[in-house]
Nucleic acid binder design. Structure first.
Length: 158
DNA sequence: GCCAACGTTGGC
DNA sequence: GCCAACGTTGGC
């Protein structure tokens, strides 16, 4: 799941959200997903599922930490707020178009695992992130998950 | 800030 | 329902 750790202003609001921000607030709703495939991936998530927190659109893009799903997909209310950077006039309350999940902080990796590095592993050649980078919510196979987990430990495990 | 790779829109 | 034009993402 991607978020931008560096400040960027959209419609007067800073959309910055990093693993440290999640650590601080502990749980957060993952709003702003405005792509059908990404939305469908979120709808498939189950409570307790683990997710990687990916830092995108920043100096060193890569995987920053781990979080878990604590609430399954429900309507993204930010789509209904005209003042919100992710407002979508075409989503109404009767038939919500966009959804979000709630995630809880699990841990930050002792080191950020750069995209550059991930691209170099043959084990990850087929990974969505490597093959087709653009999607903001992507599937990870259990083999890919285990492999990436072996590349770094959480700060809490050190 | 460039631009490739997508995704979306809308005329026909 | 095709597809050209346009918009967005995000690494570099």
């Amino acid at each position: 799941m991607k978020a931008e750790p560096e400040s960027r202003i959209v419609k007067g609001n800073d959309v910055k959200f990093s693993i440290s921000d999640l650590k601080e607030c502990k749980t957060e709703h993952w709003d702003g997903v405005r792509n059908y495939e990404a939305r469908n991936n979120m709808k498939a998530m189950k409570t307790g599922d683990l997710c990687f927190f990916y830092h995108s659109n920043c100096k060193v893009p890569g995987i920053a930490g781990l979080m878990k799903v604590v609430k399954e997909a429900y309507p993204d209310f930010t789509a209904w707020d005209p003042e919100h950077p992710y407002y979508d006039a075409k989503s109404d309350k009767e038939a919500p178009k966009w959804f979000m999940v709630d995630v809880e902080y699990v841990g930050e990796f002792g080191r950020l695992i750069p995209l550059k590095e991930l691209q170099g592993y043959s084990e990850l050649k087929e990974m969505h992130l490597v093959k087709r980078g653009r999607l903001s919510i992507q599937p990870v196979t259990s083999d890919e998950f285990d492999f990436i987990r072996s590349l770094a430990s959480l700060k809490s495990e050190e």
